[in-house]
Each structure stands twice: as C-alpha cells, then as structure tokens.
C-alpha cells in the first residue's frame, strides 16, 4: 500500500507533465515530416499560453482562450512557413527568431494590457479547464489498489488530457493511412518527386506548419489555463525543446515520440519528488541537480542509446527547382 501511495501520484504527475510535450511533439512531427525544421515550438507554445490566458481573463471563457491560442500559434506557424517555404530562408534561424520574438512580445503586451509585471491576472476556476471525474468514481474508488488508479490516474485528469492522448493514434493513422499523410511523408523525403507527381510542395508544407502551429497553441493553452492559472513570463520553460528532443528520440514517428514524451515527463515527475530527499551516503540532493536530470538524460539518450536518428531527408532544405 505504501508503494502504491508513491506510484499513483507519480503516474498522475507524469501524465500531467506529458500533455504539452505530446502536443508539441506531434506538432513538430507534422512540420518536420513535411521537411520544415521547427525549433520554434517553444515560442509558439508560449504565444498560445499568453493568448489563452489573456482572452480567458478578459472574456471569462476558457474555450475562447483556447481558440485564441490556436489562432495566434497558427499564425506564427504560417509566418514560419512564409520564411521557410516561400522565402526559402534558414529554417533554424526562423524558429529561433520566433522564440526570441515571442518571449519579448508576451512580456511587453502583458505589461501594457494588464499592468501586473507582465503576468495576466490570476484566472478563477471558471476560466480554467476543469478536471474530469470518471463515472462510478465513488464506488470503484473504494476498491483497494485499482480504485486509486481509476480515480487519480485514468480519471481526475484535466479535460485536455484525453484528446491529447487520442492525438497520437490519430497522427499515426493520418500519416500511414491517408492520402494527406502519404504526401506529407513524401514531401519531407523528396519534394522533387512530389512536384513531378503534380502535387504542390508549397501547399503541403503550409498545411503542415499550420497543423504544427495549432497544436502548439493547444499546448500553450494547457500550460496557462489548465495546468496553471494565468500567464507567467517564459512559463513554457524549455518544454518546446524537450518535445523536439522526444521527437528525435522517437525518430519522427508518433508512437515512439509519445514514448519519448512520457519518458521525459516521468523523469520530471521523479525529479520533483526527489527534491529534498536525503539519499544514503550522499546527503540531501540539491534541487538544482534534480532539476537538470531530464536534460542530462536527454543528452545521454540522444548521444547513443537510441541508435542513429535519421531525420526526413529533405528537412531543413528549402525546395528550389535547380537547373
């Protein structure tokens, strides 16, 4: 029973932390499978977080907030697309620019609109996404062992958690079983083949970056209006880069990417619980060290434990008909 007391909150926390990683990871997956490298996941998420919190605080509607987040991040996706696809600019530079721009812009707009040091006003529960209580929680919750798992891990999660986990099989199905997916996979590997097959490379890639933007928007809304209760400066805290790492770890495929996201989330959940714990022979673990564990693990995993991660062949390369 005591072990269960440890494990259930850990699993629940893992799922909570994993949600924005999964959303951003699948966002990056669509973008990069189409051949557009996206290091701007972080910035788009942050913009989404700000838009969601700002709109929810003004209108009182969390759904309008979500819509605004999708819209704003989608526009940023299109902007990234304009630089990378239409203007054939450097994709990494464009992504970094988005990150820097949004980090500054959210602060500036926050200060101007809300005058609370760059934050949005704290949101009341009515302007946040609520928790889902599964049916029969009362009765099943009584069962020892399974009961707590049912009420705290499967249930008791935020309403955005469920569609997020459904997104992974959906992405897998879209890529593998639909015409759109086939074309996305093709354009990331060989845009010339797509072009000569009479399909527009440009339209496909714009579609992909738009999807990426929208999903980042949802991730941002989750961070500021489900997990948190308002926008705080740079509140995405590097999750966009962790999602990117999970994407590489998952070799640009949906299920392994989900695995990568869950792994990083679990490490994060463990890290939080390790804070202040006294280990025999070492003493109290410094908080700073514990917080770096996910990043150290990322480097170790990417440095060799997953084998060679080969990105889509055309990713990062603007499509130019050469002569």
């Amino acid at each position: 029973m005591e072990q269960l007391d440890q494990i259930v909150p850990l699993l629940a926390a893992t799922i909570r932390v994993a949600v924005p990683l999964i959303l951003a990871g699948i966002a990056g997956l669509f973008s990069e499978r189409s051949g557009v490298v996206d290091v701007g996941l972080e910035g788009k998420m942050l913009a989404g977080a700000f838009a969601a919190a700002a709109v929810a605080s003004i209108t009182g509607s969390v759904w309008l907030g979500l819509l605004a987040a999708i819209g704003v991040a989608g526009v940023l996706g299109i902007l990234h697309g304009f630089v990378c696809i239409t203007q054939r600019g450097d994709q990494v530079v464009s992504g970094v620019a988005v990150n820097i721009l949004i980090s500054g812009l959210t602060m500036t707009l926050g200060l101007a609109w809300f005058e609370q040091g760059g934050q949005t006003p704290p949101l009341p529960a009515s302007a946040r996404f609520g928790v889902v209580v599964l049916p029969f929680s009362e009765t099943i919750g009584q069962i020892p062992g399974i009961g707590r798992f049912y009420t705290e891990v499967l249930g008791g999660q935020n309403i955005l958690v469920y569609p997020t986990f459904a997104l992974v099989p959906l992405a897998w199905w879209v890529l593998g079983s639909t015409r759109f997916g086939l074309r996305i996979r093709a354009v990331g590997e060989s845009p010339a083949a797509v072009d000569t097959a009479g399909i527009s490379v440009v339209r496909l890639r714009y579609a992909a970056v738009l999807i990426a933007g929208a999903l980042c928007g949802v991730a941002g809304a989750y961070i500021s209006t489900a997990q948190g209760a308002g926008f705080v400066r740079d509140m995405t805290g590097g999750r966009g880069f962790l999602a990117l790492a999970a994407l590489v770890l998952g070799k640009w495929r949906p299920w392994p990417t989900l695995f990568g996201c869950l792994l990083f989330a679990a490490l994060d959940a463990v890290a939080i619980r390790l804070q202040g714990v006294v280990l025999p022979g070492i003493g109290a673990v410094p908080v700073e060290f514990v917080q770096t564990i996910p990043y150290i693990m990322t480097i170790i995993l990417l440095a060799g434990f997953v084998g060679r991660a080969i990105p889509p062949k055309a990713s990062g390369l603007p499509y130019v008909k050469d002569r």
Binding site: T178, R179, I199
Partner: peptide
Amino acid sequence: ILGVEGGALLR
C-alpha cells in the same frame, strides 16, 4: 500511387 491516390483514404 503518389499524386493519384484515388481518394483521401488509402485503404
């Protein structure tokens, strides 16, 4: 079939 898939669903 790339470009002439016949419909939105491959199967």
